[in-house]
Simulated scan of single mutants.
Amino acid sequence: MAAPRLRMAAGRCFYQVFRLSRSAGGAAAGRTGIRRFSGAAAQHAAGPWRLLGAACVQRLAVISEEQRPMEARFSELMHQMELERSLMSDHELRLLDDKKKLKRRQAVDYDSEEEEDEDRDQDIILTQDLEDAWEQRRKLFHTQPRVQGDVDVRVERSDRWLTEPLVLLTQQEVGADRLWLLPQTPWEAGETLKTTAQRALSSTPGLEMQTVFLGSAPCGLYKYRLPRAVRGSEGVTGVKVFFFKAVLRGALPPPGPSSIWARKSELKDYLKPSYLDKIRPFLLDL
């Protein structure tokens, strides 16, 4: 007889919660049966947990990677096929026309009176002369190196490893330790968790940059319990960190005093394994 009473009690509790959500959420919330998620509701839902918002900022690859041997051979094959199937360009047609004019002028029975008026009054600028001028201009153009010397060693620079995406890490105090983490800060009443993540990024000292957040919903969650000695003194059971994705936009920022830009393969040298396992699934490889 205990099982039917338990089912009735569960159904009654659900009905009471549903009525409460209809009365507290207004007309719009009443139609869906879902209460509006306000700051007070977030604090009530957190209970003994402390909420934090963190921003996972990535600087995407700036230049393309070096071609693999198979990719280089395939690219060369496609270029050759495109060249064989294409029509002649205006430059190539002019080159053929110049060869005909030059051959006609070098003939023994050449008569300049037979030339058209426009060709008689001006010298011929051969296509080869244009190509020589273009070649001289090309030699004056120099590209930047793909690897910028010791920049790839200095992890605080955002312009290192231009062929790979980088992740922003900041050094923060957690208890008595200083750890490398994603920029994070405690949630405050009246703000959304995304606003908290944005505030964590803007409050990082010495870090000025433009970012674009990818959505308003968190992309990951990291949860851990505090030691029993800390629980009693602070009255909290643990911490929940909500991650929000963002990408760097605009100019690359200058190095900050307590921040680094790490490659995906370097994160294991700075982050704890349990923390890294939570952020690895949503890191972009672009």
Rank of each mutant, 00 (worst) to 15 (best):
G47I: 08
A27C: 06
M81Q: 14
S86W: 01
F37K: 10
R73K: 14
K101F: 11
R31S: 10
E65S: 12
Q67H: 05
R85C: 09
Q58M: 09
G39M: 03
R104C: 02
S112V: 06
Q106F: 03
A40L: 11
E71N: 07
P48Y: 04
H91D: 14
L93Y: 03
Q16M: 10
Q16Y: 07
A61D: 03
L83Y: 12
R59T: 03
I63N: 06
Q67N: 03
Y110K: 03
Q43P: 00
E65F: 00
A45P: 00
L51R: 04
A42Q: 14
R31E: 11
S86P: 00
R19T: 05
R94C: 03
E113H: 09
L102A: 09
K99Y: 01
A42D: 00
R19A: 10
L96D: 08
R36K: 13
L93V: 05
W49Q: 08
S64F: 00
R104Y: 08
V62E: 11
M78D: 11
E66F: 04
A46I: 10
Q58F: 07
A72S: 13
R85Y: 04
V108Y: 05
Q80T: 13
A29W: 03
K103F: 04
P48F: 08
A107T: 02
K101W: 10
R22Y: 02
A40R: 11
R104V: 02
S75P: 00
S21D: 10
A29D: 09
K99R: 10
R94V: 01
T32A: 08
K101Q: 10
L52D: 04
K99N: 04
L60V: 05
R12L: 13
Q80R: 15
A72E: 14
D98W: 01
E84T: 05
R73F: 07
R12F: 04
S23C: 14
I63S: 05
Q58Y: 03
S89Y: 01
L95H: 08
A27F: 14
D97Y: 06
F18L: 15
E65W: 00
R19E: 07
Q58W: 02
R50D: 10
G11M: 07
E76M: 12
L60D: 07
C13S: 12
S112G: 13
R68N: 11
A55D: 06
A61P: 01
I63D: 06
A61W: 01
I63E: 06
H91A: 15
S75K: 11
E113N: 15
D97P: 00
P69D: 09
A55F: 04
R68M: 09
R73Y: 06
W49K: 05
F74L: 15
F18G: 06
A41M: 11
V57F: 08
E66L: 11
S64Y: 00
S89T: 15
G30S: 15
A46D: 12
E82D: 15
A27P: 02
S23A: 15
L77I: 06
